[in-house]
């Protein structure tokens, strides 16, 4: 019997993990990535919740024992996907033609473009940054300073920016931003012990094991203040600091607070690749634009198209644990499909 080929689209953690497992199971694997290198968002991340483990460790483990038999194609954009009997024929912008017996879509997510939440002032006020920017600062070991070069005395984290917000067009909860905010707040406090740090939230969704513990630690050890209220808009003061207006809903009073730095916790949206590959293959999108598996409980990897499978956060917001587990489980499903 000829060795079957699986094309894995997307080289983030899900794509990498799945490729490895597929190769170990004896399949020929072609891993296609639109970016310059594998690893996806993991490349921009410094440390992971809930245990502040370096993201590099995960990347390293993904690369470790990476089978040489896997054909990795980076900077590759798929322009068309056709079918010839049971085989898929993928054409790329670089005019390569790839044939495969099954497709695994691991196209992942992108973060919400905070410029669209104009009232929060990202891209307008210098001291408004996103959680991705802050993580980048951490990773680059850049000192956390305001645009005027001062050490911020007060920092506010705004939860749910572009998530749970119909006005941004996204009703869904991005799941990981709550715990990310707490993690980043704690890390910031470690760097700036004098700073007063606030989290402005609607609900705190500490769903994973260890998350609530981190939340508790952030209160107990780091004195992070949690204010239940959602930001309406930010104003810029003369000195470049920001005046945030929220309602402190628990005291039922309007709250004005001056913040030297405002961090927007940007949410998960389906990546451009998820949208593009989904339309190329004619897959079903859920109302939030993520790809819809055939049955979320019982056939979480199957799609309406035979031989096309899904794994990772192209299906919706996921933390890393879930993403990797989902990738491994997809491999089992593909093996079942290709050996029958």
């Amino acid at each position: 019997m000829m060795t079957k080929t699986v094309a894995v689209i997307g080289g983030g953690p899900a794509g990498m993990e799945a490729s490895k497992e597929l190769a170990f199971n004896g399949f020929q694997v072609v891993l296609l990535e639109s970016g310059a290198r594998l690893g996806g968002h993991m490349n921009q991340w410094d440390r992971l919740f809930p245990n502040k483990r370096p993201a590099g460790e995960i990347l390293e483990s993904l690369y470790r024992n990476f089978p040489g038999s896997i054909t990795v194609m980076t900077e590759t954009n798929i322009t068309s996907i056709g079918r010839n009997a049971d085989r898929f024929i993928l054409r790329t912008a670089g005019r390569d033609v790839i044939e495969a017996d099954a497709l695994l879509v691991c196209t992942g997510f992108r973060v919400f473009d905070a410029i669209l939440k104009e009232e929060y002032g990202y891209g307008i006020y210098d001291n408004v940054i996103t959680s991705v920017d802050l993580e980048q600062w951490f990773k680059e070991k850049r000192p956390v300073l305001t645009s005027h070069g001062r050490v911020p005395a007060t920092v506010g984290f705004i939860h749910c920016v572009g998530s749970r917000d119909e006005k941004s067009g996204n009703l869904h909860c991005s799941k990981v931003c709550c715990v990310t905010a707490v993690k980043q707040a704690v890390e910031l406090k470690e760097k700036l012990p004098e700073a007063r740090i606030f989290c402005f939230y609607m609900d705190l969704r500490m769903f994973g094991l260890g998350y609530e513990e981190l939340y508790k630690e952030s209160q107990e050890k780091y004195r992070i203040q949690f204010i239940r209220g959602r930001l309406s808009e930010a104003f810029e003061n003369m000195d470049g600091s920001l005046m945030a207006k929220v309602e402190d809903t628990l005291t039922a009073k309007p709250l004005r607070i001056n913040l030297d730095l405002l961090v927007l916790m940007v949410g998960f949206l389906p990546s451009d690749g998820t949208a593009a590959i989904g339309s190329l293959l004619g897959l079903t999108f859920n109302p939030n634009g993520f790809l819809q598996p055939r049955d979320g409980h019982l056939q979480p990897h199957d799609t309406e198209q035979q031989g096309v499978f899904l794994a990772g956060s192209c299906k919706g917001p996921k933390n890393l644990e879930e993403t990797l587990a989902d990738a491994r489980s997809a491999v089992l499903r593909i093996r079942q499909y290709l050996t029958n």
Binding site: E119, G121, I124, E233, F235
Partner: peptide
């Protein structure tokens, strides 16, 4: 316009 700081600025 306070919700569109880009304009007032």
């Amino acid at each position: 316009t306070h919700l569109t700081p880009g304009i007032k600025r």
